[in-house]
């Protein structure tokens, strides 16, 4: 796990990288579609794969996956090492679950408030 949070665009990262969205360059026309699909500041994002012929990547945002190009990925500013399991769980399909029945959405809300 990364100790120091580092801010970087979502490009040239290894598969499996988890981060949270810090900001989005919203002047780009693609930014709106990205936001509708859940790429908003604070969202947990995971790089799940690269396209076979390059160019595009796929990422997971909670319960769903989206495909986007390198250019669109460069619009997304992420903060490495700030992956929050709760954020991922809140969206429906986090990698872990402790089974205690804790209200995960509320902890997600705390993350956003912070």
């Amino acid at each position: 796990m990364h100790r120091k949070p580092a801010t970087t665009p979502l490009v040239d990262l290894p598969i499996g990288t988890r981060a949270s969205v810090r900001a989005l360059r919203e002047t780009d026309p693609a930014a709106r579609r990205l936001m509708e699909l859940g790429v908003v500041p604070g969202a947990a994002i995971e790089l799940t794969g690269y396209a076979p012929l390059g160019g595009a990547i796929r990422v997971r945002l909670g319960g769903h996956q989206i495909a986007l190009r390198r250019e669109e990925a460069a619009l997304i500013e992420i903060r490495l090492g700030s992956w929050n399991e709760d954020v991922a769980d809140a969206a429906g399909s986090g990698p872990t679950g402790d089974g205690t029945g804790a209200t995960v959405a509320s902890s997600a809300a705390r993350v956003f408030a912070a």
Binding site: G38, V40, G42, A43, D89, A90, G92, S93, G94, P95, T96, G97, G99, G101, A102, T103, V104, A105, S106, A108, A109, F112
Partner: peptide, 20 residues
Amino acid sequence: FREIDALLSGVMRQVGKAQI
């Protein structure tokens, strides 16, 4: 999304083991 998270808090709970 912040408002949605607030709405969903206390409504949605992870009860079982979530998997990829």
